[in-house]
Write a protein that binds this DNA or RNA. Structure first.
Lengths: 207, 207
DNA sequence: TCAAAAATCCCCGACAACGGGTATTACACA
DNA sequence: TGTGTAATACCCGTTGTCGGGGATTTTTGA
C-alpha cells in the first residue's frame, strides 16, 4: 500500500487527482492541502510514503516544504507537480530532495505512474524535461562562493533597488556596488543586462 | 442531456473533470481541447450545449474564443474557468458573453453544479467573486488590459530576452518592441529600469 | 461603414547596467 | 611573514532601457 499526501493550491485539481486515485487498490490518500503550511501539518501527523506537491503555493512554497520534509523524514519521497519546465525550478527541487517531477499539462495517468514508481523506490521525471546542462549545475555549486557583501547586495537587487539606491543604503560608493555586481556576474557565469536581477528574483526563496 | 466541450491547457485538469463527468448520467463530453484553436474546431464540428473554457490558453485565449463562439452560435453557453479572480478578466468574459465563471481553487463539485445550472438556462458565478464597484470596474477594464502583442512581449521579457532579441523573434523593428514596452510601463503604472522585467517575472506564474 | 484600438516604425536625450581594466586598504590563515 | 581574498573606489567605453515625443498602417468592434 502506498500512502499519499497531496498539496496543490487549486482545489479542482486536487479533487481530480483524488477521484483518480480513489479507485486504485494499492494507493491511499492520507490528506490534501492547499498550501505549504497545511502540507507540513498533514505530513507530520500522518507521515505518508509519498508527497505530491505543487511548487508555487501560498505561505510555504513547494521547494521549501520539500527541503523541510526531507530533513525531518528522509524516508518520505516527494514528487513535484508544476506548470513549468523551468530548469532552475527543477534543479532546485532535485537539490531539495525530490524523487520525481511532473508537468500539469501531462495526462492525469502520469500522476498515477509517478506515484507507483516513486512509491516503490524509483524516480519519475516527465519525459519532456531535459536535465543535466553542466553550466547550470556548476552555477548552483558556485553560488555559495558569494561573499557577505555580495549576498547583501544581491538581496537588495532582488528587492528592486538600483545600484545608486544600494550605495546609499550601504554608505558606500556607487562604484563599489557596481564592482560587486560585476564580480557576481563573473562568479555566477551570467551575462546580459537584466540577468542579475533575474537571478536575484528567482533565487530569492533561498535565504 | 447536456453536451459539453472543455478547453484547458493543463491536461491533468481536463482529465480530472472528464473523470468526474463520466459518471454523470445527464452530461456528455463531446470533446476536449488544450488551446483555443482546438476548442473552436470542436465546437464548430460538434456544437455542444455548454463550453467550459480556461481564460489563459495558447494560440487563442478564452475571452477571444468566447466572443467568436457566441457570435457564431448564440445558443451555446460558455462557462469561464480561471485561476485568478481579477475583475478585468471577469468583466471581459461577461462582455464576451459568458454565462458563468469558476475559479480553479474551488472544489470540482462546483464545476458539476455550474454545468448543470448553465446547461438548463441559468447562470453560475463563483461565490468568492465580488463584482460591484462599477467605477473601479470601468476604470480597470479600460486601463489595465494588455493587448495581444504586449502580452507576448511581456512573456518574452519574462523569459530573459532583450528588446533586440524579441525584435528578431517577432520579425519586427526594435523600435516597435520598445514602443510596446513603454506602453506597458505606462499602462501598468511602473517606473524604473528593471521594473518591467520584475513585473514579467512575478506575473509569469500567475496566469 | 466608420471610428477606435492596436500594431508598426522613427527620432532624441538621459542614464543605469555591464565588460574590462587598475589600485588601495584590511584582515584571515597557513 | 607572506599570500590570498574581500572590500573599497575609480576609469573608459558600449549597449539596453526608459521617458517623451510624432507618424502611419492594419485590425477590429460597434
Amino acid at each position: 500500500m502506498i500512502t499519499v499526501a497531496i498539496a496543490e493550491d487549486h482545489q479542482s485539481l486536487v479533487d481530480g487527482i483524488s477521484l483518480l486515485l480513489k479507485y486504485e487498490e494499492d494507493i491511499s490518500i492520507l490528506g490534501t492541502a492547499n498550501d505549504g503550511e497545511q502540507l507540513l501539518e498533514i505530513v507530520r501527523l500522518k507521515q505518508p510514503k509519498v508527497v505530491l506537491t505543487d511548487i508555487k503555493m501560498p505561505k510555504v512554497d513547494g521547494i521549501t516544504a520539500t527541503r523541510i520534509l526531507r530533513k525531518e523524514f528522509p524516508h518520505i519521497k516527494v514528487i513535484a507537480f508544476s506548470m513549468f519546465d523551468q530548469e532552475e525550478a527543477i534543479q532546485q527541487m532535485i537539490a531539495a530532495g525530490a524523487s520525481g517531477y511532473l508537468l500539469k499539462n501531462s495526462p492525469l495517468e502520469e500522476v498515477l505512474k509517478a506515484i507507483k514508481t516513486v512509491g516503490t523506490g524509483g524516480t519519475y521525471f516527465d519525459a519532456s524535461i531535459n536535465l543535466e546542462d553542466p553550466a547550470k549545475t556548476q552555477k548552483s555549486t558556485e553560488k555559495t562562493v558569494l561573499s557577505k557583501s555580495e549576498r547583501e547586495i544581491l538581496r537588495l537587487i532582488g528587492e528592486g533597488k538600483t545600484t545608486s539606491e544600494i550605495a546609499n543604503i550601504r554608505f558606500t560608493a556607487v562604484s563599489t556596488v557596481e564592482k560587486h555586481r560585476k564580480n557576481m556576474i563573473r562568479k555566477l557565469g551570467l551575462s546580459g543586462k537584466g540577468e542579475l536581477l533575474r537571478y536575484a528574483l528567482e533565487k530569492k526563496y533561498d535565504f
